[in-house]
């Protein structure tokens, strides 16, 4: 049962944090929460389809289908995050520091429909990959009711812990000022985009499309991926203690648009205030 708890917690942790951050964003921008229902439905449906067609996907493209699908899902989530970052970036500079919630009528959040669409997409596709693995894992115990029961109870505890951590994080963030939260959200989007793009590189390395090289550095003696902190960072921001040069290039390719968006909005803000 402990194995099931750890496996499912690892799978749901990243999705729980993404859902939490986007729900707090929704609250801060006075956007109704009903989009999360569509996002969860999209996640459950797409993950179930991925699990149902797991054999066909694995065999596709000469046995590389799983990696291509994963890379496509990571890429789509990165694009959603870049659009979300481009919409919230002006708010980092325009929002008064004492305001806790912004009204939906605020001129700056006019493209909120695009924001909701991207939030649905990001949550749905993040869940697709992670939950598909849970369906496959639990499906492996269908032949043995005792093992199935143990896996289901372990899974429920794992989901419960992940959800609890999400709820705690929500209440820690919802009471800070809108401006402070949006800054945290932007940093979170940068870290997550970087981590996800390293995962894309890893998929391509795994199928031999890219060639591995000697790792650029090795921080496993400081934070090992086997440690609880390493596991946490791996689940949340795709921490890798010994990345390849190509992974670092992918990291910066994903992070650069976000940094440019930030610089551009800072420049515009300075120009209008002169």
């Amino acid at each position: 049962m402990v194995d099931a708890i750890l496996l499912i917690l690892r799978e749901v942790l990243e999705a729980a944090l993404i859902i939490t951050m986007l729900l707090v964003m929704s609250r801060k921008l006075s956007i109704a929460f009903n989009w999360i229902v569509i996002a969860l439905a999209l996640g459950m449906l797409s993950s179930w389809l991925l699990a149902c067609y797991a054999y066909a996907i694995a065999d596709a493209f000469d046995g590389t289908g799983q990696e291509w699908i994963n890379a496509l899902l990571y890429f789509s989530v990165i694009l959603s995050f870049i659009v979300i970052a481009s919409i919230i970036a002006p708010l980092l500079f325009n929002t008064p520091s004492h305001v806790q919630y912004l009204p939906l009528t605020n001129e700056s959040i006019k493209p909120y429909r695009k924001l909701i669409f991207c939030a649905v997409f990001a949550v749905g596709l993040s869940l697709a990959r992670e939950v598909a693995e849970i369906w496959i894992y639990v499906g492996g115990f269908l032949h043995d009711p005792n093992l199935l029961q143990s896996a289901l109870i372990g899974g429920a505890i794992g989901v419960g812990i992940g959800t609890s951590l999400g709820v705690i994080t929500y209440y820690l963030l919802v009471f800070i000022s809108a401006r402070a939260f949006l800054n945290i959200l932007f940093v979170f989007l940068v870290l997550l985009c970087g981590g996800l793009s390293m995962q894309i590189a890893r998929q391509l390395l795994q199928i031999g499309i890219l060639d591995s090289a000697t790792p650029l550095w090795d921080t496993s003696s400081i934070i090992n991926e086997h440690s609880w902190l390493g596991e946490l960072l791996y689940a949340l921001i795709g921490y890798d203690s010994s990345p390849n040069a190509i992974q670092v290039i992918f990291y910066w390719v994903a992070v650069m648009p976000l940094l440019l968006i930030l610089l551009w909005n800072g420049y515009r803000r300075n120009r209008t205030s002169i």
Partner: peptide, 23 residues
Amino acid sequence: YELNREKVIMGGARAVIFIGPLK
């Protein structure tokens, strides 16, 4: 973690993973 690889292999199926060059 050391090889930086992760792949689900369905029951009765086969999978291909490239690794290395390794020290």
